[in-house]
Design a protein around this nucleic acid. Structure first.
Lengths: 155, 155
DNA sequence: TCAATTCCCATGGTATCCCATAGGAACCCA
DNA sequence: TGGGTTCCTATGGGATACCATGGGAATTGA
């Protein structure tokens, strides 16, 4: 089952609309979700987006606590309160809401990054920085692993 | 079966009415409940609101205690005594009752927060404070989940 | 009778629908 | 192989529908 792969950068128009990359759209059609489920990432200045697969992942996390309990309420506010159910228009576009703007810093361009079961929405420059940092950290972790494995220390 | 998602802030008018966000209204229509079931949250300065799904959760809770037992009676009073069944007018508005005002501190604006099977009604400033705390707790809970399952989610 | 509630309609701003166009890639056929 | 044609995609813009909000009129209840 092919998910969201590769990354694309598209332009916002005057009304705040942006085309969702066509390959992502066809994944969403297969997924069957009506619209586009979005949630602000708690880790970085990006928004996670997807369909039923992403929603199932989020539901799974919130179900570990009993409903109506303080823990569940806190989790539900952080997860569902920070989510949006955006509509996709007939031409395959979404509108960037103010909450997404605030969280990502998006102004006139949007980068879509495929991550298999979901994709992320970034401000292009922030994404470049994040990717460079991620690659640097990955390299560091790999080389550390190599030297640490000789000493038998887990990461 | 998408539930209540995202959050909205609307203004009270001179008569104490406020529009229920349209996306929430369509969820309520699907739910089939006549009106809006409201109950003051025991944890925080918010009111839980919803339809049959919320009612079912509350019933489930109270049924964990044997009927006619003192525990059940106490819980029933706490749950159903603090409940209201508000009506929704033809334009999709509700009126903020005095009990809701007292419990939430709402004056001229209302924040509606989606929590999937229910939504909460907040005074906007109180909500901002609570959300910051909820996000902290959620991050802690999620990272605990992750290490407990020893299965790293792709970020 | 007065106050509070409920119903109904008006309005401004925003989002959504629909259609148009340009550029590029794929395709087709000689 | 090469030139033309067709399709797809991203983007732009006008027209329309929806939504939050305000306020008057009718109704209810004490």
């Amino acid at each position: 089952m092919a998910g969201f792969v590769s990354h694309f950068t598209n332009r916002l128009d005057a009304k705040g609309r942006v085309s969702i990359p066509a390959p992502f759209r066809s994944v969403l059609v297969r997924d069957g979700f009506e619209g586009l489920y979005c949630i602000a990432s708690p880790h970085c200045a990006a928004v996670d987006a997807g369909g039923n697969d992403l929603l199932a992942e989020i539901n799974k996390r919130s179900e570990t606590f009993a409903k109506l309990s303080p823990d569940h309420d806190a989790l539900a506010i952080a997860l569902f309160g920070a989510s949006e159910n955006l509509r996709i228009d007939g031409d395959g576009r979404m509108t960037i809401s103010d909450t997404i703007r605030d969280h990502t810093g998006i102004t006139d361009q949007v980068t879509f990054v495929g991550m298999n079961y979901k994709f992320q929405i970034w401000e292009p420059e922030k994404f470049r920085e994040f990717r460079a940092e991620a690659q640097r950290r990955a390299l560091a972790m790999l080389s550390e692993q190599r030297s640490a494995s000789s000493q038998g220390e887990p990461v």
